[in-house]
C-alpha cells in the first residue's frame, strides 16, 4: 500500500484501506471558518507531516480526529469504516491516541498517575480503587524502556521541565499501543537529547508497520527526518501533498514564505 505513488486524493471511495482518511472536513468557531474542506490520507504504517502557519487549524484538525471536538461537515474514515467520534474515549476505542499541543497533563498529579490518566488501573471491582502499585511498576518499566528520564515517578507534573512534560505526554500516548498516533508539536520544548529519543521512538513505531502517525511540527528538519510524506495546510485546506523525497527543505520554506508574502500583499491591497 505504501508503495502507491503519492498523488492527490483519488476521487470516490478508495480501493485500498487506509489507516485514516479525511474527506471534506469543515469546522468553524462562530464566524471564524478554520477548516474549509480538509482532504487527507494517512496510509498504513506511514508518518505524515503536517505543516502550516500558526492558526492554520492543525490543532483543530487533530482535536476532531481524536474525538475531542466534532466537525461541522465532512467525514472521517478509520480503517475503511466511516466514524463519528463523540468523545475521546470513542476515538480511543478505535486505537487513536493523541499528544496534544498543550500536553493535557495535570500539574498536581504525580508522573505515574499522569501516565495513566484516562485509563487508570483499578482494583476491587466496582469500587474502582486505584491500583497505584501496578501503575507505578508499569510506569517505571515503561519509561525505562523508552528511556524517558524524569526526576521521580512521584514528582508532580508541575515540577517537571517543559521537555520532561512533553516526554511524559508522548509516553502516555504511545503506552496505550495506538494504531493511529496524532502528535501535535511533540518536540517543541525539547532539547537535543530528548528530541533524539522521541524521534527514534516514533521511527521505531512507524517501522513496525502497525502504527500510522500524523506529526505536526514547525521544525522542518525534524519532519524531513521523521516523515514519509508532508502535507501543507493553508487557508483551511491541504494545498500540498508530497512525498518527502520529492520535497526539499528550501522548497518547503519557499512555499510557506511565498504564501506569507502573498497574504501580506493581500492585506496591504485591502488596506489601500
Amino acid at each position: 500500500m505504501s508503495t502507491q505513488p503519492a498523488e492527490p486524493m483519488p476521487p470516490g471511495p478508495s480501493s485500498v484501506e487506509h489507516a485514516l482518511e479525511v474527506r471534506g472536513l469543515t469546522k468553524r468557531f462562530g464566524a471564524l471558518v478554520v477548516l474549509r474542506g480538509i482532504d487527507l490520507v494517512l496510509r498504513q504504517g506511514e508518518v505524515l507531516g503536517l505543516v502550516g502557519d500558526n492558526g492554520a487549524g492543525k490543532s483543530t484538525l487533530v482535536k476532531i480526529l481524536c474525538g475531542f471536538q466534532q466537525q461541522d461537515g465532512g467525514e472521517v474514515i478509520v480503517g475503511g469504516e466511516p466514524v463519528r467520534f463523540h468523545s475521546v474515549q470513542a476515538a480511543r476505542a478505535h486505537g487513536i491516541e493523541t499528544v496534544y499541543q498543550d500536553l493535557a497533563l495535570i500539574p498536581q498529579l504525580p508522573v505515574y498517575l499522569n501516565l495513566f490518566l484516562g485509563h487508570e488501573l483499578t482494583k476491587l471491582g466496582p469500587l474502582r480503587f486505584l491500583d497505584k502499585q501496578a501503575m507505578r511498576k508499569l510506569a517505571r518499566q515503561y519509561l525505562d524502556e523508552i528511556k524517558v528520564r524524569v526526576p521521580s515517578l512521584e514528582a508532580e507534573a508541575e515540577q517537571l521541565s517543559g521537555g520532561q512534560r512533553q516526554a511524559v505526554a508522548v509516553a502516555r500516548a504511545v503506552r496505550a499501543a495506538p494504531k493511529i498516533l496524532l502528535l501535535d508539536e511533540p518536540l517543541a520544548a525539547m532539547g537535543a537529547r530528548e528530541s533524539r529519543l522521541i524521534i527514534d521512538l516514533v521511527k521505531d513505531l512507524a517501522s513496525s508497520g502497525r502504527v500510522s502517525i500524523i506529526v505536526i511540527d514547525h521544525n522542518y528538519a525534524h519532519l524531513f527526518e521523521l516523515c514519509d510524506r508532508i502535507n501543507v495546510m493553508q487557508g483551511g485546506r491541504i494545498t500540498t501533498d508530497q512525498p518527502v523525497h520529492e520535497t526539499s527543505l528550501e522548497g518547503l520554506t519557499e512555499l510557506m514564505v511565498s504564501n506569507f508574502r502573498r497574504e501580506l500583499d493581500d492585506l496591504s491591497n485591502a488596506g489601500a
Binding site: K63, F68, S87, V88, Q89, R92, T98, Y100, D102, L103, A104, L105, I106, P107, Q108, L109, L113, L117, G118, H119, E120, L130, R172
Partner: peptide, 18 residues
C-alpha cells in the same frame, strides 16, 4: 483522581478523555 485532574486542569483532563 479524576476530581483532582478535573479541578487541576479542566481542559487537559477533558482532552485526556476524563
Amino acid at each position: 483522581v479524576r476530581i483532582v485532574a478535573t479541578g487541576g486542569n479542566l481542559l487537559g483532563a477533558a482532552e485526556a478523555g476524563i
